[in-house]
Amino acid sequence: MIEAFQLTKSFGPRVALSEIDLSIEDGDFVTLMGPNGAGKTTLLRILATLSRPSSGRVRIAGMDPAREGERIRRCIGFLSHGTMLYDELTAEQNLRFYARLYDVPGASSRVDDLLQRVGLSERRRDKVSTLSRGLKQRLAVARAVLHGPRILLLDEPYTGLDPQAVDALTDLLVDVAGRGCLILLATHRINRGLALGRRVLVLDQGRLIYDRPRETITLRAFTEFYRGVTS
């Protein structure tokens, strides 16, 4: 469960997030939409404990990030713009390293299993620097779900993916969501946002201006609304 109360983040005079109130239940699949610079990345980084709010409160699984950071980090998986992968290490070494940091039990079979699921079994001994953008992104996804997080935060996970990898990622997300994992996926593209989420949020200039269940939204009306925001 994710909760935010009056969450505000400013960088000097620029306000990136303004008084966000938000509550997401366990197991929900929510898409977070908004144009570039709307504050999506800032919000995800705060929820991932990578950044601290200027004011307001955040609770992750009922815990305060400032006090119980380590326990919260155990249940969070975060996929950001950076792949968080070491170019100098092989695909397998990267996952094994992170598995050690997260104390993943049965690490080697877990790593094998994940490499297979993202289609990298054959290239497991290749250095990450030799992988294509799409393959790197697949590995980054594997890294994010490695420790079986209960909360998965994804920042534009589809950028740079080939169509085949898009399908693989969607399958993986549906599977993870099916196991009761809370997913918050940020994207600026309408079709992705509406295709996956059960609830849709829209951020604009740091404010949460839209919050509705997916089934009450029609593509047409939403497209019109979203155009108004992005123009």
Binding site: T49, T83, L85, Y86, D87, L101, D103
Partner: peptide
Amino acid sequence: AREQRNSCIDGLLLAPMS
């Protein structure tokens, strides 16, 4: 610089370690 590239440092900060 290795930690900086690909935001690897975020990966370390996200992990449950001090």
